[in-house]
């Protein structure tokens, strides 16, 4: 059962990434167009569908959950293999690109809350 979950995840991954690669080719650019996003969409859809039919076992979920818990460690490994030496001179850019979007989005929050229907 555990591996069925991992296999489901792998199936969504492969389908999404190939869709992204294919889209890139069709559009004539050297890029994977939204592959990871498509794969996530497939995983949500297939999980919801399987749950509806009562085919989604708890243990199957654990096969996927393991990888979602490995996500931060993998991101840590990823950040440690980047060319940071060259990027270092652009530290200010990283700082500003991290701070300003947050301020812009927070400014929108009261407006969106007002538009929201009352509970």
């Amino acid at each position: 059962m555990l591996l069925r979950g991992v296999a489901l995840l792998a199936a969504c991954f492969v389908a999404g990434q190939i869709l992204g690669e294919t889209l890139g080719r069709l559009l004539g650019i050297q890029a994977n167009v939204g592959g990871v996003g498509f794969a996530m969409l497939f995983l949500i859809l297939s999980q919801n569908e399987l749950e509806k039919r009562g085919l989604f076992h708890l243990e199957m979920g654990e096969g996927v959950t393991f990888w979602s818990k490995m996500y931060i460690p993998i991101i840590v490994a990823m950040s440690s293999v980047q060319n940071v030496r060259v990027a270092f001179s652009n530290g200010l850019l990283a700082l500003l690109a991290g701070i300003i979007p947050v301020i812009a989005c927070i400014a929108l929050m009261p407006l969106l809350s007002k538009l929201a229907p009352k509970e």
Binding site: L9, G35, V36, L43, I44, V64, W67, Y71, S80
Partner: peptide
């Protein structure tokens, strides 16, 4: 390639590479 260039640390290229990363990211959608 960051620490993957250090002797003995070449495995980081695999663990921190796009394959595992994308696989783990997709799983968070669950």
């Amino acid at each position: 390639k960051g620490i993957a260039d250090l002797p003995g640390f070449s495995g980081f290229e695999l663990l921190g590479g796009p394959m595992f990363r994308d696989f783990a990211i997709v799983s968070t959608a669950m």
